[in-house]
Design a protein around this nucleic acid. Structure first.
Lengths: 151, 151
DNA sequence: TGGTACTCAGTTGTGCGCAATAGAATTGCG
DNA sequence: CGCAATTCTATTGCGCACAACTGAGTACCA
């Protein structure tokens, strides 16, 4: 007979575990990224642009890829532009759209950031099977919530 | 033969999955807690105090329980105090310590928050085995980082 | 063509998270 | 006792995250 009470009590613990782990990983990335004075979110944007082979992405595309809204991305991209990492340009096809691309300096930066991934691998648990499992479960939960929970 | 390259590439995806899921859960909680105008972190503090059976907790104890520092907790607790949810008091034994306890209104609030857990269970994936697995793996990762990674 | 609905980026306001720092209280040690 | 080191909370400053809103630009359609 399943213990429904204890089973439901699992959910808050699960949420708290995700919350706690996210902050631990955030502190880890903050540490790894400190030499480049990048936040984790800024790093994600640079990686996304770098992975796009020099092609620009629009603010909206970045938002969909990272699940972030313009309230977060707009000032973040502006700060990256102010540092010369990124170039912002209004699209000529559609004046509403702003395209974002790495500058030459931004491309160099992206190259250097390969270092970060290696350092990350040294600091995370080495059990690849467990990591694969965890990733699969996280994506399950994420996909479930994307479909069922929020707007 | 293990594919080491792809294996290392797993780590950034894992981190991003944790990051994404945390924000999804955050939005879910924000939705559930909106009727009480509580943030998730405020909710955690109220739950911790409620679970303590009327006994106060110090700011430091709350910080250790939730892995939060005073820079986050001090203003948060003050906001809860301003709303009459919580009472702050300097310990007479040790004037450095501030104890935090639920007021009568805070205790009522804590009672009402049982609702939140039920609503949460309705919105999260119903597969309890997967949830148990995920929780165990998250804790493994969390414990590993607590020992190896940060200060 | 005129107007209405929609899309896109940006702004504002609030709260969290954390590093760095400050300052008061306590402890411990000579 | 006197003083240095430590502990504990609070403050400051910065960036992220998001809701709510604005305003410009575009699409659609009668």
């Amino acid at each position: 007979m399943p213990d429904v009470g204890a089973s439901k009590a699992l959910d808050p613990l699960l949420c708290f575990a995700v919350y706690s782990l996210e902050r631990r990983i955030g502190r880890l990335y903050a540490d790894l990224l400190a030499p480049w004075r990048l936040s984790y979110t800024q790093y994600l944007v640079v990686e996304m642009l770098g992975a796009n082979h020099g092609e620009p992405l629009t603010v909206g595309e970045l938002g969909r890829l990272l699940d972030l809204d313009s309230g977060t991305l707009s000032p973040l991209v502006k700060r990256l532009e102010a540092r010369g990492v990124v170039r912002r340009e209004r699209s000529r096809d559609d004046e509403r759209v702003v395209t974002v691309a790495l500058t030459a300096a931004g491309d160099d930066l992206h190259g250097e950031l390969g270092e970060v991934q290696r350092c990350l691998a040294e600091r995370l648990p080495p059990d690849r099977a467990a990591a694969g499992d965890l990733l699969a479960r996280l994506r399950e939960a994420n996909d479930y919530l994307a479909l069922h929970a929020d707007a």
